[in-house]
Design a protein around this nucleic acid. Structure first.
Lengths: 225, 225
DNA sequence: TTAAAATGATAGTAAAGCTATCGTAAATAA
DNA sequence: TTATTTACGATAGCTTTACTATCATTTTAA
């Protein structure tokens, strides 16, 4: 059985839906490759056009600017991850086990998923680590938020926040702890690889250590009487 | 008694030391005002030149590019904050009280400090919240790190990591917890003001609540038997 | 006071970040 | 089928950004 996974994206993010055309899928595919390779700062629509065998003008027919495209990629990832979480924690009765699973999914390198042909989730995961924060750390975060660009991120955090409450209904900061887990799953990964003295994982550089740290952080907070 | 505070900056960050000339101080002063007002993305040396009554060319004599200037500002802040911490926790015997003080200093809005005339610490604090991560979230973080640009940040985290060990010598993740505290002091602040559903502080929007959250997070982790 | 250093004034270049137009091919509707 | 949208490619052009270079003038230091 082959199932095709399709992520429902906010229509305000694009001018023309990239999922619906070959060119659109190429734009997504090569934007992931290019941003992963050279970083978001040096990424331009001109380079993307060359790489994907089209013209700058054509890309502007899909996305207003490169920042919108970044938000598109990042929120695609959050939506996809929330789906992965709901799929993989389905039928898990124990809320603690569910939360442990979530921490592992957030932290661990994802394998490329064949059910989404033009998106390389593994590269996208690394992009979200390095560039994800830039999607909201702007002066126009308020307007972008009004357009609901960050809904997938907020939804994911809300899901995690509810799992936290399922573990301990009396815990006072479920939302803040949820966003802390998500951000730290990525920041500790970035630090481990680039500024290792900011972590305790400089020697082995294994994601499993980040998982241990986050598990310790979260469950000591939730288990106190 | 009036003391002038001077932060020792990494010489590789600038071409000409901005602390040593009137123009240099103006560049720092107005770059803080401009970045705070319009954000780092729309900040240019041309606008800065107009604002500070000089020319683009003159600013390029001080800083290679705007990213170096951002790192200058952010690391200046980290150095200043580490000094504030050492000053304000001096003579505190109880390591728990010291760490609480640090969390408060990290999280709470700073007042403008008269002993550094051309730097508005309060505005700079907000810049570090919104733009600070961009100083290292780049493709050239490795080279920048080799030039020791992030030493003040690492030093600060190391100090906090040692305070964590002073509270509990057996705690396994002092460095990661330190960087988590620092990052979350800022991210929870940004979220509270811009994406409040990611926090538990959306109603009152008070920094004191972030302090409570971080204290809870840190000290339950450190107090477990 | 004289030389050196810092700044201002001005010019210029390549690239980034767009917008506009036109022709054609392919998809779609009448 | 024919007519007509629609999508895309090709090309041009415009403003801003991110620099570099040159030379005159002012300030500072020896």
């Amino acid at each position: 059985m082959k199932v095709q996974l399709r992520v429902n994206m906010n229509e305000a993010l694009f001018l023309r839906n990239p999922e619906e055309t070959d060119l659109g899928k190429k734009i997504i595919k090569y934007s992931i490759l290019l941003i992963h390779k050279n970083g978001f700062e040096s990424f331009t629509f001109k380079k993307l056009a060359e790489e994907s065998g089209t013209t700058e003008a054509s890309i502007y027919r899909y996305f207003e600017n490169k920042h919108r495209l970044l938000i598109y990629l990042v929120t695609w990832y959050w939506s996809w991850l929330e789906y992965q979480i709901s799929f993989q924690t389905n039928n898990m009765a124990d809320p603690v086990k569910r939360l442990r699973k979530v921490i592992k999914l957030l932290t661990t390198t994802v394998e490329d998923d064949d059910s989404t042909s033009y998106v390389n989730e593994s590269l996208l995961h690394q992009i979200v680590i390095s560039e994800g924060s830039k999607s909201f750390l702007t002066k126009h975060v308020g307007e972008d938020n009004k357009l609901h660009f960050f809904k997938p991120y907020k939804d994911l955090c809300a899901v995690i926040g509810n799992m936290i409450l399922a573990c301990n209904p009396d815990y006072k900061y479920p939302k803040s702890l949820a966003s802390t887990i998500v951000e730290m799953a990525h920041f500790q990964n970035f630090f481990m690889h680039n500024l290792p003295s900011l972590t305790d994982f400089g020697l082995k550089k294994e994601e499993a250590e980040i998982v241990d740290f986050l598990n310790d952080l979260v469950f000591t907070s939730l288990n106190k009487s």
